[in-house]
Nucleic acid binder design. Sequence first.
DNA 1: GAACCTAGAGATTGGAAATT
DNA 2: AATTTCCAATCTCTAGGTTC
Length: 375
Amino acid sequence: AISLTDNVVFASEVKKLKWLKNQNFPTIKTKVVHKPQEVIKVREDIFNIRSTLEYGIDGLVIKGNDIDTEDMQRAKPMKQVAFKFQAEEIKTKLLDVQWSISGHNYTPVAIVEKVNLAGSNVSRASLANPNLIEELGIKIGSEVVISKRGDIIPKIERVIKTPSDAREISVPQICEECNTTLINEGTRLFCPNEDCPKRIYYRLARWIKKLNVKHFSEKLMLKPLFKTGKVRKIADLYKLEIKDLVLFEGVKETSAKKALDNLNAVKEVSLAKFIGGFAIENIGEDLTQRIVDAGFNTLDKIKNTSIHQLSQVEGFARKTAQQLLEGVIKLYPHMEELLNTNKIKIQEKSQGKKLKGLSFCFTGKLNTIKRAAAE
DNA sequence: GAACCTAGAGATTGGAAATT
DNA sequence: AATTTCCAATCTCTAGGTTC
């Protein structure tokens, strides 16, 4: 069966959906087909009437002509696939390249002359890494063609021409934060200094993000805290009081309290999340969980094992095992300090799987525990 | 009430390493 | 050599707050 994919309605936007209902929004019809050629034909037909539709669409969804709830629960259902239209392309000019710094990695971002493309204004596009700059042969001043891949992500497709007075894109040589000479591996440009402030800050931001602490604003709170030197390590976050936050512009008691309450509300995390929150390069929560499942279920067990033993775990070979082990050993004092604040602890053992996959709704007053705890 | 900020939504690229 | 998995990064828009 075929239905239209739309980039207008988001399921969560209840208000908008209601609005659409009131507008007698045309229902999206499905069509049953039997051969691949028919799919292509339908796609062409729809593409031709696309501009006459009352709403925006970006392609088709082709799905099995049945309802398979199990399949639909997958992150990427196997019984349905999007078949989008060829992305619109437009000409523009490269004005500048900014280097976006995240942690220790430097990523080039193209700044182009603002153009309206497929319904939005585009002025930035990732250039991924130094190698891509070279492959494209792009310079400041180059005329380029951009598209939005999947109608969403701006992408520089190719260079049309580069005037003779175009300027070479300069690749940073030293870290703007700590003056360490950057290492350019072609596919990534990074600052190797383990104690680079960018790296230290990134760890804090990762922690907040990993624990899903809401309203702890990076801009208004975390950055100023870091800049003033008040917070260096994750453990420092747990010593903060409201008075430390209201010092900053744009932060008053209400938001300060909210941020700290949210931070302190997380009292227990799984070992995998704990380690994932420390931003060891290439070591995320999911990978760590595999190690935990394989029996390395305490911080010390992981710290005291060997690369060889870790590499017995699926998903880990020498490199990843080494990154994890060295990262944990290096950060162990940090981790201990954090645990010693007694504000957060690692879950003793992985929870049973009896509740896995089930959904619950709490309503009314709970007698024995608070609602948040129950959730 | 204006101005500003955040979260979250959907979507894709592309590198690296591991696995098959 | 091909496939899978993870990770990090990018874009825009808007509802719903907070602060000024």
